[in-house]
Design a protein around this nucleic acid. Structure first.
Lengths: 159, 159
DNA sequence: TATAATAAAGTCAGGGATAGTCAAACGCCC
DNA sequence: GGGCGTTTGACTATCCCTGACTTTATTATA
């Protein structure tokens, strides 16, 4: 008995046909297979997960969509994002984060400027969480991001 | 199904064509797009918000108009950063942050990818601050940054 | 000048179109 | 019969769009 989820997975992969991304309507797809719309979410979660090399994007409301992006595997055929994410785990020190960012830069996954942004966003100083609320914390993060964005815009180079 | 709001937004931006202000008739525009006049207000509110650096002026009655003014914070370096920082203050909502980032992108201060990174770093979801320590929070931030960095690396463009 | 008519634009609640979440039910396989 | 992956449905969240009603400005008229 072919499982529905497997059929849907195959269908989507055929739709992609080698392309690295595709957009679809959740409800249409569900109707095509005569199943509940949430079944599509299940397929996405189990078959098109980050671990399997996919990233999902979506939008609700009029003109809504679900976008599936297939990442290219790294040189060893592995899933690089997945590896990196596993190195982060539930917590990571400033040194750990910056080391990881540096490595991404070395691998040319990000530009120097982008690395600078990421380092700024994850610096201890940015996450100074004094009393509480999210907005206060975010302001701190964004302030650092701005300063960083400007830092190497002024002719300078170094990160 | 293309979103009307997006079309109207594009139309207005093209009309402005680099200028820092434009005047239009709400009803005419609505008629041009075959929609309810209040649709224009929706577009103004969501796409030309103060957070994105626009100010709306209008007048009713005979000879009425809607004027859209794009605020260009001081064009040169130091002051520009200063202006933007002052808009952040001690706290800023997700919408406020993302509007500001959007404006920086419009002003070509950052690339689309960088804007994506900044949006990821400042998303509510990234700042899920459960119970405790900085490292946990940072992990959340960095995880989002990584996913974002990979998201549009695959040739795509979209924001 | 006061008042009425007309011509804008604004506001807001609500409906429709999507998609997401989650817990419970289902069903296959050991 | 129990476990685990699958499937569903009820409820929620978000975004877009409209229509009825309100507000403001100008012009015409008494």
């Amino acid at each position: 008995m072919a499982r529905l989820s497997d059929s849907i997975e195959r269908f989507i992969i055929e739709l992609m046909d080698g392309a690295d991304r595709i957009e679809l309507r959740r409800n249409e797809l569900a109707q095509h297979f005569g199943c509940a719309p949430s079944q599509i979410n299940y397929v996405l979660a189990t078959r098109f997960s980050i671990e399997r090399g996919y990233i999902i994007d979506s939008r609700r409301g009029e003109g809504g969509y679900v976008r599936i992006v297939q990442m290219r595997p790294d040189t060893c055929g592995e899933n690089l994002l997945c590896d990196l994410l596993s190195r982060i785990g539930n917590q990571i020190t400033e040194d750990g984060a910056h080391g990881l960012i540096h490595q991404m830069l070395q691998l040319a996954l990000i530009t120097r400027r982008e690395a600078g942004l990421m380092a700024a966003a994850t610096a201890d100083a940015s996450l100074a969480i004094p009393l509480n609320t999210k907005d206060i914390l975010r302001a701190s993060v964004l302030r650092s991001l701005l300063i960083q964005a400007f830092r190497d815009m002024e002719g300078g180079d170094e990160a």
